[in-house]
Design a protein around this nucleic acid. Structure first.
Length: 1130
RNA sequence: AGUCCCAUAGCUCAGCCUGGUUAGAGCACUACACUGAUAAUGUAGGGGUCAGCAGUUCAAAUCUGCUUGGGACUACCA
């Protein structure tokens, strides 16, 4: 017996199937059943286990799951090792919050050891919750042997990778400009900078400085810039941080910006000067009244300063102009040669300032980049050891070399309140402004209020400051990364070429350093003078180093390293080749390096598992949110490309497996899950959706199906809980009903698929049709999955189940299941419907793993046709081309259209379907059309309750035709006369159309155009005198004459209908035979006599008596005629 | 601020790459029908300035540019 269900409960089904999977180890079998020689590799992007999972995790993990399950069905062995991302700032912050401490307390109130121990505990706090979600949502991933980024083995692989880079000079120490808080003495991450309240309004002294051009240089613009040797021509540049002016090393212009040279006077010194600034900004510095005013009449102190434009240039013309250093405290040969010149930069605008940006390479991130790109050296001081330092020290004070301001804080906020209250106190910026004014180097000085970031701990403004950091020289392999990216299949493509491609094009070196505690330590040891250093690539190497150190007497012999985190590794002192002590560089590395290295580290490669690694490299498929583009996707790619360049082991393996050096071949980047109004879900708004509630209430299957079918993965999903319910009703409900229908009758007839498979050619048209569609569907769904288009797959399956299988096949075939003997037609129907259901379970199983398995198991429990324990162990359906019949699909579509049109006509004239009608008329304009319709005629007739279809031939002359222009064909021919031609054609008279058809061409009056038949479509639009309707090229007319015979048949059907209702009301089994007594009402007498056999057969009546007396039984009404009827079980 | 994505019926989405004159589907709504799939099903109906403006074209939801709104990422700037 096929299992029958009272109603559909997807949530319950999910729980039961989950138990079944566990008991029977289905997941394990889905891997062990497949050959290891056919691997399909998936990498799990490790979630951070320190937060609760949200509904968006169901989304991204559904996508991962779908393709892994699909590939399993396709015969691949798909291992999926789980993983946990365990390092990083969020964990540190969670611990600090929990313990009620700040970073300052680390090493004071709490030891680094205890702190890190707390992190280790914290990070796995939510593991159980995550594992629970993973199971309940049906995500198959190996949770028993996950990789964990804090484990020693994992870290050891990271060290190995870093050493490979180090050996090829791809790891270096350098400066980067970072937000830095002198008051707190620490760099700040962008995360810290984005805390609420860090950006505050600040009033700063802003200066427009005059950078004097050298008049003795060789440059094409010199004649235009200097009228004579005495002329003082300067470039104007604006700054809100005057303290950076001593460090000025370049001026940046925009290539496309227009600049002008303006002759005028300095407002402070009254000296004549020629200034260069952006044309758009003239109005900001010069009064209209002064334009072209007399220079002779100008007197010192005049409010109106005369000016006039004497030249105009593009930014690109100004490039490489050299100027005198503005504040020459620090200078050298290299600077004179390569600095103090005009460069171009893309960030220059004409919105503020002068359109020329003062650039101090070490005090601004943009500046730093622009200078590096243009090979402009930085203005730095050098200590006795030859180390370079910026002009401002780490306390935020000018160094001694800046004689006039030495020892002064660069920001006035760094002075105490008392100092600032002193009436003689002058901020350093103001002192600089005064000096520049005196030196005739300031063009304009003003207070300027702007938003500026502050340190969230000290509340003082931050500086952009160069800090020592370790970098990976990703720029060295940039071209290779760009090149290899082109071979990666991105879904959607635009993310790969756009977001990711652009990112690679603008690649900068990867700043690895993090000044933190809980993370992978940088394995670099340095002597104190920085002259010697080494990079450790394994635990063994470290232990050897420790041994030597013990021998050298630097370390205690009892020292043992068991944990590769801080503080333990910090206690290791190594011996340099010359016998000096080397200490570990205190930095941790970026956590993104942890996750990007997972292809190697998850296997502890190359220390162990070489084979496992080789078999699982690179990934065939990965999937994460689009926010990982510059995160995990990038680090995976970067590390893979660089290892291919640096590591012999990796190169060898890549050569062997034919990998050019990528970490993944296909990548799906999914969009966000928003709330139903399109807002981002957040704790603050309280609009988040709890995945556990959703799964409990609506099931994992419906949730997954909803998310996948509703929008393409890479489009943002507006998550509406009602949508899940719709999916349940629409799709799962329909499928479940179809199965219920099947099981009801299959159980009655004892269909167990024991009979021989009925030859396709022996099956009726409608069976061959649905099987044709089914095979087309298999093919289609297969290619959608293969193309990483799950949404299209889901929609195709859903459309098949709803529209074709349920709404047409089952509806039209109902009689075949309940009527008559267990004939070959009936068996054919069962076999066909069974095959459809069984195939659909496999097609849908990647998306809805629970329900599909239940359906599959229920079907096969009876037939035993498939020898596997789960749909997930089955093979993906293969399209049998010989069963695909496009012509059949086409004519069935025709049947559907014609039926629908006839029903629509019935509706219009108010004759319901139970009343048979004599005939429908269909105009045929070509012979193939008639053949097509003829083959599906019976379906149309029974569906619409019509006796006959009559074809009206063209020659009968009763069809009224219409010409419809084929614009695509006419376009090139008539061009702009289209309107006229189209109107003429549309309004052609019947005789004209006939003429057109006979001659196969038609001349348009009043023009030279001769229209041919292929330029138009001629269709039958009307059959005058009949009820007619049209759809596209189809036209159908209905004969609504009711003969006595038809009327009586109609009455018989009504009678049958009432008897069936009674059977049901009385709760008779569908197989019960009955006896019927009906009051002999004149309305039905003749109808019963004429159609007695029909009525009895339909209602399973063994006897049918028209009784003249009785009034017992139920009262029924047909067309206002009332009479009684009594049915009893026979 | 820059880059990218998105905008079609009350809601969720097709269509756009490759332009063709009546822009589709489902849900919701209304009416009717069906009643041996029945907590199911069918038919019909209303509902759209295809975000706006401009351009290219005989013809634009579709191609181009700009604007507006939403989102993402990057940056935080003299």
């Amino acid at each position: 017996m096929y299992k029958e269900y009272k109603q559909l409960n997807l949530s319950q089904t999910g729980k039961e199937i989950l138990e079944y999977w566990k008991e029977n180890k289905i997941f394990e079998k889905s891997i062990s059943n497949r050959s290891a020689s056919k691997p399909y590799t998936f990498y799990e992007g490790p979630p951070s286990a320190n937060g609760m999972p949200g509904i968006h995790h169901v989304m991204s993990r559904s996508i991962k799951d779908i393709f892994c399950r699909y590939k399993t069905l396709k015969g691949f062995q798909v291992k999926r090792k789980g993983g946990w991302d365990t390092h990083g700032l969020p964990i540190e912050l969670a611990v600090e919050k929990k313990l009620g401490i700040t970073k300052d307390d680390i090493g004071k109130k709490i030891s680094v050891e205890d702190y890190n121990a707390a992190c280790r505990t914290e990070v796995m706090k939510y593991t159980d919750v995550w594992n629970d979600l993973t199971e309940k949502m049906g995500y198959w991933v190996d949770l028993n042997n996950p990789y964990v980024t804090y484990q020693n083995e994992y870290i050891e692989t990271l060290w190995w990778i870093l050493k490979e880079f180090y050996n090829k000079d791809l790891l270096y120490k350098g400066y980067t400009v970072q937000p830095y808080s002198p008051a707190a003495g620490t760099g700040l991450s962008s995360h810290e900078l984005n805390q609420p309240g860090t950006y505050k309004m600040l009033k700063d002294t802003s200066i427009v400085a005059q950078f004097r051009l050298k008049n003795n240089q060789v440059h094409p613009l010199i004649p235009a810039l200097f009228d004579d040797e005495a002329e003082d021509t300067v470039i104007l540049a604006w700054t809100t941080t005057p303290w950076t002016l001593p460090a000025n090393c370049a001026l940046a212009v925009g290539n496309q910006i227009t600049y002008v040279k303006v002759k005028t006077f300095n407002q402070y010194t009254y000296q004549p000067v020629s200034v260069i600034l952006a044309k758009d900004l003239i109005g900001k510095y010069f009064k209209k009244e002064g334009e072209n005013a007399s220079f002779q009449d100008y007197k010192e102190g005049d409010k109106i300063i005369p000016w006039n434009i004497t030249g105009e240039f593009k930014g690109s013309d100004l490039l490489n102009l050299r100027y005198h250093q503005l504040m020459p405290y620090v200078d050298d040969e290299n600077l004179e040669k390569n600095a103090f010149r005009v460069i171009s930069a893309d960030f220059v605008t004409t919105e503020d300032g002068t359109g020329i940006v003062h650039t101090a390479s070490v005090f601004g991130a943009d500046d730093f980049r622009a200078c590096r790109e243009n090979n402009v050296p930085s203005v730095m001081v050098t200590d006795e050891k030859g180390n370079e330092f910026p002009l401002v020290n780490k306390q935020g004070k000018f160094v001694d070399e800046i004689t006039d301001f030495a020892g002064r804080f660069v920001k006035e906020e760094y002075y105490s309140d008392e100092e600032r209250k002193d009436p003689d106190f002058r901020p350093t910026d103001v002192l600089i402004a005064i000096k520049l004014k005196e030196d005739n180097k300031a063009f304009d000085v003003k207070k300027y209020e702007h938003s500026y970031p502050h340190c969230w701990r000290t509340d003082k403004p931050i500086l952009y400051y160069p800090l020592d950091s370790w970098f990976i020289k990703t720029t060295a392999v940039k071209d290779r990364m760009v090149e290899l990216n082109k071979g990666i299949n991105w879904k959607p493509e635009s993310t790969g070429t756009g977001r990711f491609g652009n990112w690679l094009e603008n690649l900068v070196d990867w700043n690895l350093s993090r000044s933190r505690y809980w993370g992978t330590p940088l394995p670099i040891w340095r002597s104190q003078d920085g002259s010697e250093e080494c990079c450790i690539g394994s635990i063994e190497e470290l232990n050897n180093g420790i041994k030597k150190s013990v021998e050298a007497g630097f370390m205690d012999a009892a020292f043992e390293i068991n944990d590769m985190h801080r503080p333990y590794v910090d206690d290791v002192i190594l011996v340099s080749p010359t016998g000096k002590k080397m200490f570990r560089e205190a930095d941790l590395i970026d956590v993104w390096f942890d996750s990007g290295a997972m292809p190697y580290a998850q296997w502890h490669f190359p220390f162990e598992n070489k084979e496992e690694f080789k078999n699982a490299y690179p990934a065939d498929f990965i999937a994460e949110g689009v926010d990982q583009t510059r995160g995990w996707f990038f680090t995976l790619h970067a590390i893979a490309v660089m290892l291919n360049e640096t590591s012999d082991v990796i190169k060898e393996i890549n050569t062997e497996i034919g990998n050019k050096g990528v970490a993944f071949k296909n990548v799906v980047s999914n969009g966000l899950v928003l709330d139903k109004n399109g807002n981002k879900m957040s704790k603050r708004l309280g609009n988040g959706i709890d995945p556990f509630d959703t799964i409990e209430k609506y099931s994992a299957d419906a949730s997954r199906w909803y998310m996948i079918s509703n929008a393409a993965p890479w489009d943002n999903l507006k998550f509406n809980i009602e949508g899940i319910d719709e999916v349940r009703r629409k799709f799962f409900g329909t499928l479940h009903n179809t199965y219920s229908f099947f099981s009801l009758y299959a159980n009655i007839d004892g269909f167990k698929y024991q009979e021989e498979e009925i030859e396709n050619s022996e099956r009726p048209e409608i069976d061959r049709w649905i099987l044709s569609l089914l095979n087309s569907l298999s093919q289609e769904v297969d290619s959608y999955y293969a193309d990483f288009e799950p949404t299209k797959a889901a929609r195709a399956i859903q459309n098949f189940v709803d529209e074709n299988l349920s709404n047409w096949y089952v509806r039209l075939c109902r009689r075949r299941f309940w009527k008559g003997d267990y004939s070959s037609d009936k068996i054919s129907a069962y076999q066909t419907l069974y095959t459809c259901l069984n195939t659909v379970t496999k097609l849908m199983s990647p998306i809805a793993p629970f329900f599909s398995d239940r359906l599959f198991l229920d079907l096969n429990a009876v037939t035993g046709k498939e020898l596997v324990e789960s749909v997930h162990l089955a093979d993906f359906p293969v399209c049998n081309e010989s069963l695909v019949d496009k012509a059949l699909e086409e004519r069935m579509a025709l049947a559907q259209d014609i039926s629908s049109m006839i029903l629509s006509l019935r509706k219009k004239v108010g004759i319901n379907v139970r009343q048979p009608l004599g005939k429908a008329l269909i105009p045929v304009l070509d012979s193939t059309f008639k053949d097509k319709v003829d083959k599906v005629k019976d379906l149309i007739l029974s569906e619409t309750n019509i006796k006959e279809i009559e074809y009206i031939l063209d020659t009968s002359g009763i069809i009224s035709k219409k010409v419809r222009p084929n614009f695509k064909a006419l376009g090139p021919k008539v061009g702009k006369d289209m309107k006229l031609v189209a109107e003429k054609l549309t309004n052609l008279q019947q005789q004209e159309i006939a003429l057109f058809e006979r001659e196969e061409k038609f001349k348009i009056e009043g023009s030279d155009y001769t229209i041919e038949l292929q330029d138009v479509e001629i269709l039958a639009e009307d059959v005058p005198g009949w009820q007619v309707t049209s759809l596209g090229r189809l036209t159908v007319a209905l004969d609504i004459t009711l003969t006595d015979e038809l009327l009586q048949e109609g009455i018989s059907r009504e009678l049958v209908n009432r008897i069936q209702n009674l059977r049901k009301e009385l709760n008779f089994e569908v197989t019960d035979k009955i006896n019927v007594r009906v009051e002999n009402h004149p309305y039905i007498t003749q109808a019963v006599k004429n159609n007695l056999l029909y009525i009895c057969a339909e209602t399973l009546a063994e006897s049918f008596v028209l009784d003249n007396e009785t009034a017992k039984g139920e009262k029924i009404i047909i067309e206002n005629n009332e009479f009684t009827i009594l049915i009893t079980k026979a």
